[in-house]
Amino acid sequence: MTKPKVASDWLAGCAGCHMSFLDMDERIIELTKLVDLRSTPITDLKEPDEDGVDVGILEGGITNTYNEEVAIKMRERCKILVALGDCAVFGGVPAMRNFPGATAALRRAYIETESTDESGMIPNDPELSFPVHVRPVSDVVKVDISLPGCAPSADAIFYVLSELAQGRMPKVDGEFNDWH
């Protein structure tokens, strides 16, 4: 049996969920015996294989058009999509921006900051992606497994991945369902 391929990426998050993934320590070696770890934001390969992977993992919420593209690409290339952490599942801390609105948040950050003088301006380079209403991944693409937590524990991540690696659908409940 070939090992299932796993790819991950991060959107608008703090990288904390990936740090929590690394927190599983030596179990990563066990895990790599079970799965073929493909692209991740912390390894050389950055994009999931064009011919697809079995499991895609996304950390972070959708805050701009680039996040949308990444989420859509991951969804197209994976069979099972895992939303990892509170930002991917609910929108998380970046979603606080939705209460005042993106424009007000950008003004506060780039123009009204106490240390900014009158030359302050909101970045407007055409290369930059466009900020959107912050949403969970599931508002953009279909999510198969939600693993909430800020961050989800290494145990919870190991449980979900090892279940998937062995061809079972993990049930996130009990101590593993911790929204924080």
Partner: peptide
């Protein structure tokens, strides 16, 4: 938690 909800099926309204 008691209902094993892992996410919100309905997106919040974000009304302050």
């Amino acid at each position: 938690y008691d209902e094993d909800m892992t996410h919100w099926p309905i997106t919040p309204a974000y009304k302050p």
